[in-house]
Nucleic acid binder design. Structure first.
Lengths: 380, 380
DNA sequence: TTATTTCATACACTAAGTAAATTAAGTTTC
DNA sequence: GAAACTTAATTTACTTAGTGTATGAAATAA
């Protein structure tokens, strides 16, 4: 999926400034090939040359680094009742975030219209000096088809088979790619945030529901949505929004936790902290722990990252989890398992969407519009 | 990872006889490209031309099919105390299986020596008329590194970082690839067996332990080991071989089930059937169900395939699982979830190993020895 | 017979690389 | 201070794996 150009761009992103010789060694591409590819990248202004410091002997290398400000992508996060839009540079440096609120009950067409109108405004205000906008990344609250064009199902919003990519491409005139928002955030943390030096992470996100995403970086990359909110922790328990019974989300989510704290007011600043004082907490925490430890056992991430309300919980919660989770996974996993807070800046949703767009429209093959012939449309 | 040649070989395997025109349509490769590629394949005897039946008008197509008997791979399954070796053709048609028993306590070098000696015998007896042997696939009882060369950890055998690929390549003179044996079997069932027409399967295998593998076919292929045996179902429970406490394997495995049936004799023919009559069964079954439903919720397979003792269990067990599992997963998963028996012939381990070898040495790029330059050795 | 349709191939070309030789720019050795 | 050495980068000619277009091949339909 990733060609020589993409390979080199990715290494420059992850490995700081690198000489051509070093790139050739790391990627296995011939030095001649690296010269050719970097010449093109330099010509397009994507790469900056600086004086590099080499070994004691031999010709000193020229250090290449990514010109992060030379291209942009548009990031759109569709969360529970709120859309956020921002431009990002090539290193996930985000511009100002503009947001709008909507009602999840509204027809999805209206939500699309309002969001794409806001997105068009952001595009219109884009600084041309920061480079061409390569495409749009869209995080949606639900599962996405294999091609990243259709939101197949959203439990939260009740949508089915919404062709977001078509709609946004028509409205904005830019290629668009979709991803499950929780998965996108996991990918962003894995590549640019708390998972930078880990091979794989499980990102847990407590918001309106409990979402999770698994992301693996390195030679074999992949990401997958993890429907941890709909793991059945109490068979035959209360009916969930998803139609199942006894899902974790019925016990561990914004609404559920707010119920046990008794505080029915707005988005409590410290949801977990308040819940921890409730007499119901130990039981609820046990259910959460059970679901998370199973997810860790099955997926085997090197790191667990706590997002949303979990990340803003009091230190006591993190300590508790660091104490209770490791004994519940296999020793060989336990050895390397780290439980961390996210390191990307809020709002994290647009970071996820930007990460997906960058991956698709930049780091796989470079910004060169691929010859049509190369875009195989795999038929039935 | 898969080039045009591999793409075409894969389609011919999965989609029966196909004309060049049909291949071009399905793969998106130009008709000229298909002609070029198939000409080479035909020249190497990998593809057979037959009269095809086309549409009412136009030149009738020539149907191409894979010459399954034109190449072979060597499959080696390393299970709990038993190694099995066989040759396979390109469609997973297995030759006679030869086996040897060993003690898991033996030094791993001795096990390797004995197994590779048996493998060398099988290779020496190989019928040259059935084609060149392209490589070796080795299923090992534990996790494998990303390059498929080292068994990083085996809970069952207690091995760590055993370089099986180096050892077998040296002994047999053939390129060798490793995979976790449970994952390999899952892959084989997904491609050639009970998962042929499903996008993804979760393959459960009850033997000495409980293993599982997840395999996804189609445009985005992947497979992953699923350590379901070491999901903690009773926190703080009895210590497991893995070092954890309260793992599923302590309740649901050959040894554990034999204990509750009281029958301490050899490998009971009907382990599950006997266990179902024990008063302890409902509780044990509940733990199993809990682990499996969570795995299904998190991984989202279209099909669950029951291997090992689960596959040879009485029909009542299958009926029970088909009744109890669906209510524990989300409705959108439930709709399409099927619970099936394996369809590959016993012994299934060598099928898994053969599948891995075929994938690596045949279906990704064809049997053409790739120019060295193309094999990028990705450095640190 | 001639047109139409579909399948397959021939030919000239291109993208993305490779290998080997060469040039470049520094340090070390005598 | 010149020659030897080392590492970095580029040039040149070539290869692989395809593409697009034009053409040939084999059937049915008018």
């Amino acid at each position: 999926m990733r060609n020589g150009t993409g390979e080199i761009l990715t290494r420059l992103r992850d490995g700081g400034p690198l000489s051509r010789a070093e790139l050739a060694r790391q990627t296995g591409i011939s030095s001649a090939g690296v010269t050719k590819i970097t010449a093109q990248l330099h010509g397009e202004g994507l790469v900056i040359e600086r004086e590099g410091q080499g070994r004691p002997v031999g010709r000193p290398p020229v250090a290449l680094s990514l010109a992060a400000g030379s291209r942009q992508v548009l990031a759109i996060h569709l969360g529970a009742g709120r859309a956020q839009v921002a431009l990002s540079d090539l290193a996930l440096g985000m511009g100002p975030v503009r947001a709008l609120d909507f009602d999840l009950e509204d027809p999805v067409d209206e939500i699309i219209a309002a969001t794409s109108s806001l997105a068009a405004d952001v595009l219109a205000d884009a600084d041309p000096a920061r480079g061409r906008v390569l495409g749009v990344g869209l995080g949606v609250p639900g599962s996405v088809d294999a091609t990243g064009r259709v939101n197949t199902h959203s439990i939260l919003a009740g949508w089915r088979n919404v062709a977001f990519a078509d709609a946004f491409e028509a409205a904005l005139g830019l290629p668009t790619v979709l991803e499950h928002n929780a998965t996108a955030i996991a990918m962003a943390e894995a590549r640019y945030g708390a998972g930078r030096d880990a091979a794989s992470i499980l990102h847990l996100f407590l918001g309106k529901g409990v979402g999770a995403g698994f992301a693996q970086t390195g030679p074999e990359e992949r990401c997958a949505p993890v429907e941890i909110g709909h793991v059945v922790v109490r068979p035959g328990g209360p009916v969930c929004r998803c139609g199942g019974q006894g899902c974790l989300e019925r016990y561990f989510s914004e609404d559920a936790l707010r119920t046990i704290t008794g505080a029915a007011d707005g988005p409590g600043a410290d949801l977990i902290g308040a819940a921890m004082h409730s007499p119901a907490w130990p039981e609820i925490y046990e259910l959460f722990l059970q679901a998370v430890s199973t997810a860790v056992a099955l997926l085997g991430p090197e790191r667990v990252v706590l997002g949303g309300h979990l990340g803003s919980a009091p230190a006591a919660f993190l300590a508790e989890l660091r104490r209770d989770l490791p004994p519940r996974v296999m020793p060989q996993q336990r050895e390397r398992l780290a439980i961390e807070l996210p390191s990307l800046p809020e709002p994290v949703g647009v970071n996820g969407a930007a990460c997906i767009a960058l991956e698709r429209f930049f780091y796989t093959a470079g910004p060169v519009s691929a010859p049509l012939s190369m875009r195989r449309t795999v038929g039935a």
